[in-house]
Design a protein around this nucleic acid. Structure first.
Lengths: 124, 124
DNA sequence: TGTTTTCGATTCGCTTTCGATATGATCATG
DNA sequence: CATGATCATATCGAAAGCGAATCGAAAACA
């Protein structure tokens, strides 16, 4: 910001928001992090930010996508070590999707990239 | 925010940022918008937010990815009507990647989703 | 002019992903 | 128990993605 006043989060314009988004995702791509799709990112962040437990069915409903799509997303995220499947002991039809240390680190770094992008966009 | 003070953008924490990111991308997925990868989103936003002209080579360098990857991303974005290829008249080897009305609308709506997510996360 | 370099696109084979459907396992119910 | 509902995933052909190599066109240079 040119006038030195602190920009308030509520005043964020769509253009500003998009600029921050671009900076963050561009930096992510540059760093050669896994090229996650929107769906995969939605699944990953939901698992980490929303209260457990998380099932394929629940995620599919919440994200309004078919269950096999969630299964595939979990496949990919599991291969990357960002989430882990764990059979539900109480209902053995279900599989719970859990967090991992690697996933926590990944999202933590991603969050910092967003913050960095926000600072670059709205700096005084 | 619970105390009613305006949250400043500079104070954004990685956790807050991630929460906003999740809300936005989740809403995007729920609306059944095209499931773009991080690379595709990086290409799309760069075309719209960075000064023209944009070439495959330039985008590849800027994003640190291989040229065919950019070509494929442009293929996909073109099919979706979000960008348009246009032969460069001055250097007819080159193809310029231009914006479209549809792409402008898409990103505009996306920006509004982010703003909406930011409001939801940091509301008073 | 002739050679070299640079451009984006294309092709190759191989792998991955897609949506839709079918399947096997497990639970709930009558 | 037996029957149907519900869970996640296996499977399918089709489509898209991948990196590496190659293409032809065109610019730059000699």
């Amino acid at each position: 910001m040119k006038d030195g006043h602190a920009r308030e989060l509520m005043d964020l314009t769509p253009t500003d928001a998009l600029s921050i988004w671009r900076d963050a995702i561009t930096e992510s791509v540059r760093r050669d992090t896994p090229d996650l799709s929107a769906r995969q990112m939605a699944v990953l962040t939901t698992v980490y930010l929303c209260p457990a437990p998380h099932t394929v069915r629940g995620l599919a409903e919440q994200l309004n996508v078919a269950k096999p799509a969630v299964t595939r997303a979990v496949d990919r995220l599991s291969e990357l070590g960002l989430v882990r499947r764990k059979p539900d002991q109480e209902d053995r039809r279900s599989v719970l999707i859990n967090r991992t240390v690697k996933g926590s680190v990944f999202l933590s770094e991603f969050g910092e990239m967003i913050v960095q992008a926000a600072h670059g966009t709205s700096q005084s």
